[in-house]
Design a protein around this nucleic acid. Structure first.
Lengths: 257, 257
DNA sequence: ATTAGTTTGTTGTATGATGACTTTTGCATA
DNA sequence: TATGCAAAAGTCATCATACAACAAACTAAT
């Protein structure tokens, strides 16, 4: 009983090809292989990933379907120029400043609102289940007093995925990494992010979104996502102010000593 | 001379898997296999299509990537429940490149809708004037029977600029270059793009957007932009179909000679 | 120097086998 | 008969190997 597979929550079987897709996609979005360049050959990828060529080929096929790469018989597999890479490079340059981070967050808002609307219309059963799963995971972590950040991200990512438009996922990946660096470790954010009220509020908003998507109501989904994100925006601003106050105080303390 | 089988520009190398994908997708969209039902096994498909299982698997992987089917290990491959006809149908007969263009266009839609809303709230006098300027320029070009494309682009760009968020402009530039390669020179589009009715319709939609922004009504601006862009999306699809028909005809003509 | 032929590397396709998982079947038991 | 459980069959997932098709680089002959 209780064999090793059931110890964790649902986490179904991640197909090998999906793992490879995720790995390669991350490298591509990070710009490790510039657009126009050739990827390693299937044989080399087979070695580096330790899987058969079948898996590599399936992964490459999926990436090609997403428009990330392009295979030319006899020549190789090449990286296609991509919006996320160009835009990600832009955002990366200016990603340090807070005011810019808010601007990027605003772009993310546009993407996610539309995502919710499309997800309400186009989601399939598995995708809806994935969204619910992320929601319940958030709940579980909340009750266990554990960091809910990953589940939050998974929730939004599942929605983007449910649009069946891979570009939304890529956008979210690129923007999310830049705009949501707010982890719980920062001294000025602990009391806010980890507060139960705060997370409970997030979850309430998530529920409204989830319901709208489940009901297939695109308009309601967009509205729910809009309120959720504008509030998050507001919370983010408050946190920035809190951090600034924190640093100001610490500077003052250092000055007086 | 290069007697290669594909002297025509339409498609260079139709991979076997793509053929299978098209065939199965047509069957699915035609409803020959109701949603939730199981497809024939890979082995059976191998027989019916006369190709290897490798090809069948790649085709199924692509269909799964598009969200049309879902494979359950040990059980079979099943048709997804919610197949939105609007989404699935357009990807049906067109190559991956076109479907990618449509996906990018959809991201642009998200950006521009939010742009309009923000512009309605944040625009200053000069920015509002710039939008109006582009609008009247469009009108002028229309009356002069000159290409209105540049003015159209300027209109949208002015709105993005009026958000006072430079990333929206960047986004629009990056996406626009990719999603709007439809110049007026193509033989299959001239009659559509240059038609007076077509452009007059665009301008009517532009006016609604302009009014909403001038009135400072963010919700109305978003709605107006949404209808404008969804209609543009529809027009774009129709143009793709027209192009396909055009090429199909030319191929047919080439075959008969 | 140009061109034709050859070689080599890479993707596309075919085939067979094995493992993992799901569903069904059949049998034993109450 | 009804129920529960184990065996079996069916199916996808992965692996391994081989050959075909194609493209680029290289070599040699004119």
């Amino acid at each position: 009983m209780a064999d090793s597979t059931t110890d964790l929550r649902v986490e179904r079987k991640p197909k090998l090809s999906e793992t490879v897709v995720a790995a390669i996609r991350r490298q591509l979005l990070a710009g490790e292989i510039p657009p126009g360049n050739k990827l390693p050959t299937e044989g080399q990828l087979t070695e580096t990933f330790g899987v058969s060529r079948t898996v590599i080929r399936e992964a490459l096929a999926k990436l090609a379907a997403d428009g990330l790469v392009e295979a030319r018989q006899g020549a190789g597999v090449f990286v296609t120029e991509h919006i996320s890479t160009t835009f990600g490079a832009l955002a990366a340059d200016m990603g340090s400043k807070d005011s810019i981070a808010l601007n990027v967050l605003e772009v993310r808002l546009a993407i996610e609102i539309e995502s919710a609307g499309l997800a309400a219309i186009r989601r399939n059963a598995a995708q809806e289940a994935a969204i619910q799963e992320a929601f319940f995971e958030f709940e579980r972590l909340l009750l266990a007093s554990q960091p809910t950040g990953p589940a939050d991200l998974a929730f939004h990512r599942a929605i983007a995925s449910a649009t069946n438009n891979p570009f939304y996922v890529e956008m979210l990946d690129v923007l999310g990494r830049r705009a949501i660096p707010c982890d719980v470790t920062s001294p000025w954010s602990t009391e806010l992010v980890q507060s139960d009220d705060y997370q409970r509020g997030l979850q309430r908003e998530h529920l409204v979104i989830l319901d709208a998507i489940s009901a297939g109501d695109a308009g309601a989904a967009r509205e729910a996502m809009r309120t959720h994100l504008t509030r998050s925006q507001q919370r983010y601003r408050e946190r920035l102010q809190a951090r600034q106050a924190y640093y100001a105080k610490s500077v003052k303390a250092a000055a007086t000593e």
